[in-house]
């Protein structure tokens, strides 16, 4: 039996990323490039320089190339769970696990990551470690896949598996929801937390092309409870057929949903805006609005 918090097999995640690093599939990077661009736009909006930055889940250094020299980044440290990916990243790279980060406290001005947190088991723990690695007033900025990602594939695989194998096992990894993540950022001790979500729909020629692409990205299933061994060819074929039946457009292409959640937070610092104590207001809202104030009736209160 696995620990209740261990959802993902981190060794499998590592293996998948190593395999993706060897494949070097340029086409399959489309989604990561799109997400990286959006993340960098966010970074450009911050008028601040970040001399020492950490990029986690750096893959083969694609985002790192654009990060260097941007936003006043003098030194960029890049880490990935996959040694093969870190080796391709170039620059100051290392292999590290987001669940056990090997950095001293309060060193980085920026901690940034593109689409890797969805494979982390202990997300609160990872966020706490990242906050600790930040200097006071340092920025945490990350994009991760959210719960609506691959929603069509999830449905097609579930229906096919029930029909073909008399049972159901997790095929598409469980993912975080926006409503939980704001609380997690706060729990990790990050100030001014912001969580927002964007949905991208990518058209694929057919379901098999999607599955091949997921493999090339190193994003195939790593859930601990997934069935041992490979998915049966009959189940895969049934899932592909079901996917097309349910979602295909008139020309046979299929839509694939990716939900990308962006997390922003700052390591606390005295210079940041602070909430006032309740009851500490010195002027009345009614005066500011030039309105008449009516006290609330107490009737609604339970007795």
């Amino acid at each position: 039996m696995t620990d209740s918090i261990t959802v993902f097999n981190r060794r499998a995640v590592r293996r998948h990323r190593d395999r993706a690093a060897r494949g070097g599939g340029e086409d399959s990077d489309l989604l990561f490039r799109e997400s990286a661009e959006r993340l960098l736009d966010r970074l450009d909006d911050v008028t601040r320089s970040f001399p020492l930055a950490l990029e986690f889940g750096c893959r083969s250094g694609e985002m790192g190339k654009t990060l260097r020299g941007r936003s006043g980044i003098d030194t960029l440290v890049q880490c990935d769970l996959s040694e093969a990916m870190a080796a391709q990243a170039g620059g100051m790279a290392l292999a590290a696990d987001e669940e056990a980060l090997p950095f001293t406290d309060a060193v980085f001005d920026l901690v940034i990551g593109n689409l890797s947190l969805h494979w982390v088991n202990d997300l609160p723990g990872a966020l706490i470690q990242m906050r600790r690695a930040l200097k006071p007033d340092g920025l945490f900025l990350a994009a991760m896949f959210g719960g609506d990602t691959l929603i069509e594939l999830r449905q097609a695989l579930a229906e096919a598996e029930i029909a073909e194998e008399d049972g159901l096992s997790p095929r598409v990894s469980p993912m975080a929801e926006v409503r939980d993540l704001g609380g997690l950022l706060q729990r990790a001790g990050l100030a001014l937390p912001v969580v927002d979500s964007e949905t991208l729909t990518v058209m694929y020629p057919d379901p098999m092309a999607l599955m091949a692409d997921l493999r090339a990205m190193g994003e195939t299933n790593a859930a601990v409870e997934s069935r041992k061994g490979f998915t049966r060819p009959a189940t895969l074929a049934a899932a592909a057929a079901r996917y097309s039946d349910l979602f295909a457009t008139s020309d046979g292409a299929i839509p694939v949903t990716f939900q990308i959640i962006t997390l922003t937070g700052w390591a606390p610092d005295a210079s940041q805006q602070q909430p006032l104590q309740p009851g500490s207001a010195t002027s009345r809202l009614a005066d500011a609005l030039d309105a008449e104030e009516h006290p609330l009736p107490d009737k609604a209160r339970p007795t």
Binding site: C79, E83, A87, L94, A95, D97
Partner: peptide
């Protein structure tokens, strides 16, 4: 440290 890359994984 392999080829200049520290492998900071407990497994390794």
């Amino acid at each position: 440290i392999r080829d200049g890359i520290p492998i900071m994984l407990i497994d390794e």
